[in-house]
């Protein structure tokens, strides 16, 4: 069942800019420029793109705190901008850089407030809180004022607060920003658990591709307000024409290695880097090098998702449509 439906969604901002001393010109910024896609119940979707691509604008429209300028949008059958309050009970939102917790009061007090705010039945509230406390290690923190929590602790506290009323969808805007490795792992583990246990649909924006690799079966890449990729991670590799890199250590510096099927990247003394398509086998390349050069050692680096995405972004910037724009 489709839980989130976007059809030609647009958001245009009018920006006034001063031109000369008194004159001001108006011009339009198309923050979201015709996005169409659907998200099924229970999916975990990564929503990525460079800064200013339109990610947060989309999330704001999905929560109803921003009205679309065009297109159609439904979340759980509700038009978010029209019925923001009705929708609120069915979604959970975590903005990584903003907190909904009461700054000076213990975590527990903020949770009691959430219970009142969303009218969560007592038994349900207890069960949910207990589960969150267990999975997110919140027990020692419940009595600590929020201002004394570390960033990672606060983030875990915020995520729990967003889930106490059993939302069907959880939007996370950069949930792991600024977190250390251990906190990141905890947050990711928890999100996987929630998704598996309750079937909560998760839509997350991030700049941390580790989040995507470990959590999402589907990635949407947005740039300049347009969807430039929508599909699995492997499809992203194919789309980005990923390459694997062969790092070759020779016995002595030589001229750049030239063998069929591989492309010379750079050299540093006796070490050279060669790239070849991710889909191809390394064996013939290796054999060719071993036969003609004084090979000492070598290693193969797997394709880096960051580079794939960086390439997608730059292509978008050059004005060309993304290689697999399905939207």
């Amino acid at each position: 069942m489709e839980l989130i439906e976007l059809d030609g969604l647009e958001k245009v901002f009018t920006v006034r800019r001063s031109a000369g001393r008194l004159r001001r010109t108006r011009h339009e910024v198309r923050a979201v420029d015709g996005i169409s896609c659907t998200v099924r119940r229970g999916e975990m979707v990564g929503y990525i793109g460079p800064n200013g691509a339109g990610k947060s604008t989309t999330i704001k429209m999905l929560t109803g705190i921003l009205t679309p300028s065009g297109g159609r949008l439904r979340v759980a059958g509700i038009d978010p901008a029209r019925e923001r309050t009705r929708l609120a009970g069915r979604i959970g939102v975590v903005f990584g850089q903003r907190t909904t917790l009461w700054w000076d009061l213990p975590l527990r007090d903020s949770y009691a407030l959430v219970r009142r705010l969303y009218r969560v039945p007592e038994a349900r509230y207890r069960a949910n809180l207990e589960r969150c406390v267990e999975l997110l290690d919140l027990a020692p923190l419940l009595h600590v004022p929020v201002r004394q929590l570390s960033l990672g602790q606060r983030m875990r506290g915020d995520i729990a607060a967003a889930l106490l009323h059993d939302p069907e969808v959880l939007y996370l805007d950069e949930p792991t920003i600024g977190l250390d490795v251990v906190s990141k792992a905890k947050v990711r583990g928890f999100l996987r658990e929630v998704n598996a246990e309750r079937g909560t649909t998760v839509l997350l924006t991030t700049h941390d591709l580790g989040d995507i690799e470990q959590l999402c079966d589907r990635v949407m890449v947005i740039d300049h307000g347009r969807l430039v990729h929508d599909g699995g991670l492997d499809a992203l590799h194919a789309a980005g024409e990923s390459e694997r890199v062969l790092v070759v250590d020779l016995e002595r510096p030589t001229a750049p290695i030239a063998v069929p099927g591989a492309r010379f990247v750079r050299a540093d003394g006796p070490r050279q880097w060669l790239a070849f398509p991710a889909a191809a086998s390394a064996a013939p390349v290796l054999a060719a090098i071993a036969a003609r050069y004084p090979l000492a050692d070598l290693s193969v680096r797997e394709p880096d998702i960051e580079q794939v995405i960086a390439r997608l972004y730059t292509e978008g910037r050059d004005g060309g449509a993304g290689p697999s724009g399905r939207g």
Partner: peptide, 13 residues
């Protein structure tokens, strides 16, 4: 000023 008011707006209150 910080824009955090957006968070307040999606609460049902």
């Amino acid at each position: 000023r910080s824009g955090d008011v957006a968070v307040d707006l999606y609460r049902p209150a």
